[in-house]
C-alpha cells in the first residue's frame, strides 16, 4: 500500500505524535478514532492542542451507543454475540492457565532435571500455540453464527454512518488511532467497517498513525499482557484478530512497566509463543514506521533510542536499530 503506517508508544508523559507529524510534513486535516477512551472519546482538547492541526472526530463509541438505543434488534443480536464471545474467552483463559503452567514448569524444571527432554517442552509449547490458534478459529465460528453482525456496516441502519465515516476520511490526510480499551476500540472499528476504510486511506497514500492500544488494534493479532497483575499468573492472552493493516508483528506498549523484561525466561517464552511474529515493545518516545513486505514487515525506527525494542526467542531484548538499519 502506498500510504504510511506509523506506530507510536504511549503519549504520556511526553507526546511525540506532533513531532512525528511535523517530520512527516503532515498538515491535516486528520481523522481521529478515540473509541478506546469510551465515554471520554469526545474529549479531544488536549490532543487537538498538542497536534495543532484540524481534527475530524469519528465518534464511533457514541454512534454505537446511539444505534443500540434506536436499533434494539441489532443491538440485541450484537449483545448475544458478545456474550458468546465472552463465554468462549472464559473457557480459553481456563485452558490457557493449564497449558501455560505446564510449559513454565517443564522449562523451569528442565534447568536442573536433565531427564526432561526438549521434545516434552516442544510439545507443551505447541499446546499453547495450538490453543492460541484455536481461540481465533472459534471466534470466527462464533461470529459466523451471527451473519447479520458479520458486516454490520452494510446493514441499512449502519450504512449511513459508515458512509459518513468514509466521506470524512476522504477529506483527511490521515487517521489517528488513539489507545485505550483495546477490545472496545477494535469492536467499534470493525462494527463501522473502519478496517476497510483504513485500507482505502492507505491505498490513496494516506497516513495511519496509531499509538499504544491503537497500534495493537491495527496489528494482525492482539495480545493482552500484564506480567505482574494483582491477581493471577499474568500469562499473556490472545484477544482477537486485529485490523491486520500489517502482518507479522505483535505489539507491546508500556512494556517497560507491564512486562518483566529483565526475566529472560519469560521474554523467551512470550517471543517463542508468538513466533514467527516479531514482538515489538512500544514505550513512551517510540515511533516506528512499518513497511509491508511479502513475508511480514520492515520496521524503521524514528523514535527515541531504546523506546522500541524487539523481544528475541532467545530471551533477549534489543533496541531497534536506528533508521537505516531496519530488517
Amino acid at each position: 500500500m502506498p500510504g504510511r503506517i506509523v506506530l507510536l508508544g504511549p503519549q504520556h508523559p511526553e507526546p511525540n505524535l506532533p513531532a512525528m507529524l511535523d517530520r512527516a510534513g503532515v498538515r491535516g486535516p486528520l481523522a481521529v478514532v478515540s473509541a478506546g477512551w469510551r465515554y471520554d472519546e469526545g474529549h479531544l482538547g488536549p490532543l487537538a492542542a498538542a497536534v495543532k492541526r484540524p481534527l475530524v472526530h469519528l465518534p464511533l463509541y457514541r454512534w454505537f451507543d446511539d444505534l443500540s438505543q434506536h436499533e434494539p434488534g441489532l443491538a440485541e443480536e450484537w449483545h448475544r454475540r458478545q456474550q458468546r464471545i465472552a463465554a468462549l474467552k472464559r473457557a480459553y483463559q481456563i485452558e490457557l492457565r493449564g497449558v501455560a503452567h505446564v510449559l513454565e514448569e517443564l522449562e523451569s524444571r528442565a534447568i536442573h532435571d536433565k531427564g526432561i527432554q526438549a521434545e516434552e517442552i516442544a510439545y507443551a509449547r505447541a499446546a499453547v500455540r495450538t490453543l492460541d490458534k484455536r481461540v481465533l478459529q472459534r471466534l470466527d465460528e462464533v461470529r459466523a453464527a451471527f451473519p447479520r453482525s458479520l458486516r454490520p456496516w452494510e446493514l441499512p441502519e449502519v450504512a449511513a454512518l459508515h458512509d459518513k465515516a468514509r466521506a470524512w476520511l476522504a477529506d483527511c490526510e490521515g487517521m489517528l488511532v488513539a489507545g485505550g480499551h483495546v477490545a472496545i476500540l477494535l469492536n467499534r472499528m470493525v462494527f463501522f467497517g473502519l478496517d476497510d476504510l483504513s485500507r482505502e486511506l492507505l491505498e490513496r497514500g494516506g497516513l495511519v498513525a496509531a499509538w499504544s492500544g491503537g497500534a495493537m488494534v491495527c496489528s494482525e493479532r492482539i495480545v493482552l499482557f500484564y506480567d505482574d497483575p494483582p491477581e493471577g499468573s499474568g500469562d499473556p492472552e490472545i484477544l482477537d484478530r486485529g485490523l491486520g493493516l500489517f502482518r507479522g508483528l505483535a505489539l507491546f506498549p508500556h512494556a517497560g512497566r507491564r512486562l518483566r523484561l529483565e526475566d529472560a525466561d519469560r521474554v523467551h517464552r512470550l517471543a517463542t509463543r508468538l513466533h514467527p511474529a516479531r514482538c515489538l515493545t512500544l514505550d513512551n518516545g517510540a515511533c516506528v514506521e512499518v513497511h509491508a513486505t511479502a513475508d511480514g514487515c520492515e520496521l524503521v525506527d524514528l523514535g527515541t533510542p531504546g523506546s522500541a525494542r524487539e523481544l528475541g526467542t532467545d530471551g533477549s531484548v534489543t533496541a531497534l536499530p536506528a533508521a537505516g538499519g531496519a530488517r
Binding site: 478506546g36 483495546v182 499504544s212 492500544g213 494483582p230 506498549p253
Partner: peptide, 18 residues
C-alpha cells in the same frame, strides 16, 4: 492496599493501553 483496592474496585488493566 493493592490487593484490597483491586479486589473491590478492579480496573481494566488487561484491556487498557492508553
Amino acid at each position: 492496599l493493592r490487593e484490597g483496592l483491586t479486589w473491590l474496585f478492579p480496573g481494566y488493566l488487561w484491556m487498557v493501553y492508553d
